[in-house]
Amino acid sequence: MTEKKLLLTGNEAAVLGAIAAGAKIMFGYPITPATEILQGWIGKADKSDELQYLQTEDEIAAGFGVLGAVLAGEIAFTASAGPGHVLLQDPLSMAENLRLPFVGIMMQRGGPSTGTVNFSQQEVNLAAFGGNGDGIRLVYSASSVLEMYTLTQEAFQMAWRYRFPTILLGDGYLGKMKTVVELPADRADVKAEPILKEVSESTNIRNCYSSEADLAEVLQKNLADWNHARKSLVLSESYELDGAETVIVAHGLVASAAKDAVSILRKSGVKIGLFRPITLHPFDTEVLKKAVAKAKKVMIFESSLNQLARIVKYELADQKVNYEEVSKPAEGFTAAEIIKAVKGK
């Protein structure tokens, strides 16, 4: 069942996804290529009595503003990229330890730092492991404009259900490309409640502990919850994996090109398939393990040096796999390039 057909950019789809999920406040700082999310939200908020926004002095204030709002029980978020994503590691770390449902939409740009303004997949490490903790964050990677809508909703839903900080990764091409999408009518059911509870027994929360043992107790509980939730959180797409001798692993927009490549190669009889992780963290290891069990080769395509490859190799550490990594840091892939790489030319 579809709601309506709209001509949307990825950034516009993210705004609609946030509204559909029941988000009420956005905190943000302008940064290419995520700026249109802030602008789009403000455009909606100025016509609404329900939606609020704050254009902050920097991303640190935006991130901690989100934390203040979620402590009050409001569904809130920010959107950023590159250097802003770096500054957001401080609030993300607090959210990680205090289990606050922080949601950030990160439209990756080329790095390090200000690098280029349009595209990369170089913020995977930052999103999943960027804080000074052990990386208990939920990270999604969108590969289409439609997913910028659906996964934004998924991000809010899971952040509030499991209380892990949650990041949706996109990139500048995805944010700015415009396409016709049919938005599904199904909406995320996000249940938000105050974390500072305002009841007679006061809620006192700290993120600084008196001893290693005190902190360890908190961390062990958080890790146990994370491991318990993994199965419910992982998402992936399997495409033409039946009988695939070559398994491509790619995420985001690169996976979109890889899917085209697989489709073309299959028509010419090449036994090839695509595994696309939708959650990069946690990772849908079980599905990938099945896919690679009979494969001769696993090819990892990514627009970063080996940020996806490290995750894949760690998750498949107990498998005997013949890897080929095709990395193009901060540059995109066409289907033709992927076909060429598969054919070894």
């Binding site: 009420k24 406040i25 704050l54 902050t56 503003g65 203040g68 402590l71 009050a72 409001e74 809130a76």
Partner: peptide
């Protein structure tokens, strides 16, 4: 970061 947290809290 306390000021930023309380600004966000107060909005909500």
């Amino acid at each position: 970061r306390t000021t930023s947290v309380m600004v966000g809290y107060k909005m909500a």
